[in-house]
């Protein structure tokens, strides 16, 4: 058991190391400087993967660990994006305090939304959160607040500090988002492996049992929503920094569906699954777009339905279920191969 634990740790460290040297590897292969051209483009791709990975992971804390199906997760992501955008652009705050404000607002928002919508459970919760997210989407589109939110055009050209600007200082932005994703992953792992996280999983498995055991399940569900909401809001804030804008689409249903897709494809109930799913979706979306043009969302939807039908545990879940069998099979095959060579 200890052996496997270290091996997965090694895999994680290798992955991080690979991502750290990745820009230079691309630059080496293409012969272009790290700061421009193809390496810069791929840094951009991975920056989006990192941001979406945090978003998907936050979604899985709710869905995979606490068993709460929310269809309004875009609410937190979008509010984070708008908060940082408005504070930087209209209030002229500096980046640090704006990020702090994002966290505070996300905590307040998730507590309010959680208290209101946790009065219902199951699919009702999904519907209610969808309605809340849609309300914020409509408010973001409303022309009444044009001077603050920019209505349907969204917040354009958010003034990101020059030292972290995604256009001129892309490499630095790359490392900042990479660090952000790693830190968020470690934090989420702490939460999930803590006693609180265990209670969340107990609620997922059987809420009545958790209640009977004496846990005040509402509190733990609120904690899950708040943790998840803060992470999603930070991801949204970074998304706004990366795009230099925040438009109503970040609050739309599409954003939630994106998180859902990444979680399902990567594997529900694990932290690394949704992060992998984010990578798969981002890259698959890119390639499908290149090969099939504007009709790629259709293929995407079909792939998604097939995965839900036939691969319900996603990549990581299926790997965990089957890897022992696969490994045993390969070991057996290699052994018989060796036997064959030894005694032909």
């Amino acid at each position: 058991m200890r052996d496997r634990f270290t091996s997965s740790q090694w895999a994680g460290l290798t992955l991080i190391g690979g991502l750290i040297i990745f820009p230079f590897v691309v630059s080496l292969f293409t012969g272009q400087p790290v700061e421009s051209g193809v390496p810069k483009f791929w840094q951009g791709m991975l920056i989006q993967v990192f941001i979406l990975a945090v978003f998907a992971m936050s979604y899985d804390i709710l869905m995979g660990y606490t068993g709460i199906l929310s269809f309004g997760h875009a609410l937190f992501f979008g509010t984070g994006a708008y908060t940082i955008g408005i504070l930087l652009k209209h209030a002229g705050w500096d980046l640090g305090s704006a990020l702090l404000a994002v966290i505070v607002i996300a905590i307040i928002q998730s507590l309010i939304v959680g208290l209101l919508s946790l009065r219902v459970s199951g699919v009702y919760f999904a519907m209610v959160t969808l309605a809340f997210a849609q309300m914020f989407f409509l408010l973001a589109e409303a022309t009444d607040f044009r001077q603050w939110t920019g209505a349907e055009d969204g917040l354009q050209s958010i003034p990101v500090p020059a030292w972290i600007s995604p256009t001129t200082e892309r490499l630095r932005f790359y490392y900042v988002t990479l660090a952000f994703a790693i830190i968020m992953y470690l934090l989420a792992r702490q939460v999930v492996n803590s006693p609180t996280g265990r209670v969340m999983m107990a609620i997922r498995d059987n809420e009545t049992r958790a209640k009977v055991l004496g846990y005040h399940t509402l509190t733990f569900k609120l904690i899950a929503i708040t943790v998840s909401g803060v992470m999603a809001a930070l991801a949204g804030a970074f998304n706004a920094l990366w795009n230099l804008n925040a438009n109503p689409a970040v609050l739309g249903v599409g954003t939630t569906i994106n998180a859902l897709l990444m979680t399902i494809i990567g594997g529900v109930g694990s932290l690394i699954g949704p992060m992998l799913g984010a990578g798969v979706i981002q890259l698959l979306g890119y390639w499908l777009n290149v090969f099939f043009g504007p009709s790629w969302p259709l293929l995407f939807g079909i792939v998604y339905i097939l995965i839900v039908l036939f691969l319900p545990y996603g990549i990581v879940g299926t790997w965990r279920l089957r890897s022992a069998g696969w490994l045993a099979m390969w070991r057996e095959r290699s052994r018989s191969l060796i036997r064959f060579f030894n005694h032909p």
């Binding site: 199906l69 269809f71 699919v123 999904a126 569906i257 859902l260 399902i264 009709s295 969302p297 259709l298 995407f300 939807g301 079909i302 998604y304 339905i305 839900v308 039908l309 319900p312």
Partner: peptide, 27 residues
Amino acid sequence: SLIRPLYSRPIYQVLVTLGLVFVGTEL
């Protein structure tokens, strides 16, 4: 075709219908 195989996994039914929104709109 899509909902009936999933009666044992209720959440996945919802997920399938959500995927159908995607597919239907694009179609």
